[in-house]
Every structure is written in C-alpha cells, then in structure tokens.
Design a protein around this nucleic acid. Structure first.
Lengths: 247, 247
DNA sequence: GAGTGGTCTAGACCACACA
DNA sequence: GTGTGGTCTAGACCACTCT
C-alpha cells in the first residue's frame, strides 16, 4: 500500500516541515517554536519523534532548546559546515610530521605600537618573545623562521625546554588547564628579506609565505601569537583538508 | 538517600564508563563494542539510555555505529575539534565581501599529464576550463587570477551566466542537488609571471599567493578544482578563523 | 534466519524558568 | 504553581548485514 519505495523516517518528515517553515519565514529568527507536546499532536507522532526531529534542526544550527523555556529559532538557513578533517589544532598548523624548534633568542618585551599592531594586542602589554627557526629534524634544513610571542604570565612555558619539541599553545593548555577556544590565522605573500633568506637557504627578494596565528583563551584573552615565514613551494605548502558535515 | 547533590544522568555515567574503557585500551581501535542490548543489561539501564550514551561517544568521534553490524571503536581519544567560525564554505574562500568573476575564456579541455597533476585528477578526463579574474565589484581592480576547472558533466554550470556572481561549487550543489563533502586546499608562495602581474596591476617577479582548492562530492568524485593567484599583502590576505568546539 | 542497529510509541518523572 | 524541555523505561517493529 505504501507507494513510497524508501519511505522517510517520520522524524525526517517533521524535520523537513519545520525547516521549510523556518527557511520561508513562518517561524522568524528569535521566535519560539511550538512546544514539543504541541508538535507531537500537530504531526501525529510521539514526543520522542519530535525530539529526534528537533535534534537534527539543532545540529544544523537552526534552533536551540532552553530547559524550562522552549525551543527558539536562531537561524533561518541550515549551516553547511566544514570541519578540519583530522580534528585537532595541529591541522591548522599545516605540518605533516614532527617538527622541532631551534631557539635563537628569548626575551621579555613590552609591546610597542608597531609590535602591538603586528600581534593584534594592546600596546604596552608584556610578552615573552622567542625567536628561531623550525626544522623537520635536528640538523635538517630550516623551513620556517618563527617568532613566538607568549603572554608574560606564561613565562615558564616561554623559558622551558619543552618548547623545543611541543607547540606552545599545547604547553599552555596542558600545564595550566587553559583551553584555546579560538584561533585566527592570516596568510599573505611577502618577499624574503636578507635575514630570512639566509636562515631558509634562499635568496633575498624570493617569494615567501607569512603566516600569523593568534590563539585566544575562552575568556577572550590573547595568550599566544606566532609569526611564521616560509619559503616558496619547493620549501613549504600550507595544506588544509575540510570534511563536509551535515550538509 | 542520594548523597550526590547533582547526580549525573545515567547516560552520562554509561558514556563515561565506555570512554574510560576506550581511552585505557580495554576496547582497542577497530574492536566492536558490546551490542546495545548487552550494554543495556550490563549497566542496568534501558536500551534508549545506552543509545544516548553511544550518541555522545559518536559525536566525540570515539565510535561509529553500522546498521546491522555493530558499534566499532574508531579512536582512542576524544577529538578536540575546531570548526570554521561562520560555518560555510565561503569562509574557506577567505573573501569577506561579495566578489564578481570576469570571465576571459571558457572552453572544454581534456586533461593532459601536466594539467592532471595541477588539478589532482586523472589524465584524459574532460573538464570545462573558465579563465578570468576576480574583482570586488564590476570595474574595480582585480585581486585574483582565476582558473576554474569544472567536471564536464556540469557543462551548464560552466557555461551559464550565474557563474559570474555565484561560486561554481554552490551552483553545482544547488542545481544538481549534489553535496560537496570535502575540500582540499593548498597555499604556496610564488613569483608572479608577466601575465599575472599585468592582470593584477603588479610587477613580474613580485611575490604572490597560489591557492589550489579541490572540491569533492560525497562519492569521492572531484567535481571542481580552482587555481587562484593573488598578489602580496597590500592586495590580499587569506584569513581563517577557527572556533573551539567540545574541548 | 539470526542478530544488529534504526525508528517509534505511550507513558512517566525530574529539573528548570517564569510569573 | 504551571509549563517547558531533559531523562528514562519497556516494549515493539523495521532495515540492514552476515552466514
């Protein structure tokens, strides 16, 4: 009797109907959806089925439920989300294998106007600056010039030896139980200056990649900024793979 | 009688126990978990509660359920995940505002050995090549040289006018109901050649960014590849913001 | 056919927000 | 207090995979 060869689950029917209502504006952003009980009666399905449908809408970022209050529309189009494939901060770095840091200098600095602009912090704040190069292994060729700036309160991280083999953001996270919740990254093309070319084994004026990354804690504080300079394609490629998610 | 001031939900207890088992290796990667019925009996909870617990583990990337087969351990530590902040493919592009494409050429091509290597496809396959430049608005300066390669089956997308104002990946997705599930992106530093410098208003030899993006459908087919060349920092910055997610 | 996860129901009680 | 979403149960049937 069922002419549908592969009938959709009932929760999918409910979810589709609600999604259409939201996308077409019948439930505007900020509006409360009918309660789960009302939807259950309206669609003639159990409350569990309604909840399964609402769960899908929630995963797509369309609605958010508040305990004791109701379910509110928070967006009018499903988000199509892409996530870093392997799912860790390391992927943002674009390093495939292990890397080690050769430190050339460490010193505490106060952010001048110019440095503050480069870091994206406020002028006058205190930072530990660690300068050096990155190599794939000790003694190998350098593939990046690195300037780390670590918030002064994490002086132990900046001055410790663990920094040579472990990314600073991870040391900060592990030793202090502090969670990095946001990363901003900017990539631009530059010409290598004489010092950079010397460190990377290239020639001055040759093209390079400049990558700035800023790491923010949950409370919005900038805890680390890194300024990296890489050589051209022969030396470094920044690769990022994004996997699709609930389309 | 309950000495726990805020007792955890039962599914959380089950999820915690299973997570500990996985992290400590009692259920190794690749191993099957006990069936939902077994877990239900073992923990003395209903199957629904077990499923809620398994759902959490699945969201953390620890296990994956296969219909008719069982639930398999796929990782031994919860993933710490970062997602693109605004949550759409557009973020991957790094364009802040609207952009328009000025098409200089469109033609169907067969992938030579060299082109296949540049696109990351098989030699001999058929593609539509669309060449041009990208501007922020019609008549404005060009900020990117663009070569789009679109799988031959989407000839209508490659030859249509919508391409001038809408990204090809979106046209493919919308007009054909085809979902892009994976994007690979690679960024390298290059020197602009004479043609590129001319189009971008720079000088030959000046540094530039080369960005290759490849778009894959759910079945693994490469449906679009784009090769973009941008000028230096004055002209273009690639920005990516990642928001933290579940620890 | 046997066993698995996927869907669905009807009903219950709890925790929370708000008036 | 009233109503909301959050949790939980016992049971049922279906769709799928494997043998």
């Amino acid at each position: 009797m069922d002419s549908n060869p592969t009938p959709q689950p009932r929760y999918a029917v409910v979810a589709q109907a609600l999604t259409t209502d939201i996308v077409e504006g019948r439930h505007g952003i900020g509006a409360m959806l009918p309660t789960e009980g009302e939807l259950s009666r309206a669609f003639g399905v159990s409350r569990s089925t309604v909840r399964e449908a609402l769960r899908r809408l929630g995963e797509q970022g369309l609605v958010a439920a508040a305990h004791g209050v109701g379910t509110r529309v928070i967006a009018d189009r499903p988000r199509s989300e892409y996530r870093l494939a392997a799912g860790s901060v390391a992927d943002v770095m674009g390093y495939a294998g292990p890397v080690c840091l050769d430190v050339a200098s460490r010193q505490e600095v106060q952010a001048s106007q110019g440095l503050a602009a480069r870091l994206g912090c406020e002028a006058g704040t205190q930072w530990w600056h660690v300068g050096g190069v990155r190599r794939t292994h000790r003694g190998g060729p350098a593939f990046a010039c690195v300037d780390l700036f670590i918030a002064a309160e994490f002086a132990d991280v900046a001055t410790g030896e663990a920094l040579l083999s472990t990314p600073a953001y991870r040391l900060i996270g592990e030793s202090r139980g502090l969670q990095i919740t946001e990363i901003k990254q900017e990539i631009t093309a530059i010409s290598l200056d004489a010092a950079q070319a010397g460190l990377l084994g290239g020639t001055p004026g040759q093209p390079g990649l400049h990558i700035r990354r800023r790491f923010y804690a949950a409370d919005g504080r900038l805890v680390e900024a890194t300024l990296n300079v890489h050589g051209d394609a022969d030396c470094f490629t920044y690769a990022l793979r994004l996997g699709g998610f609930n389309g």
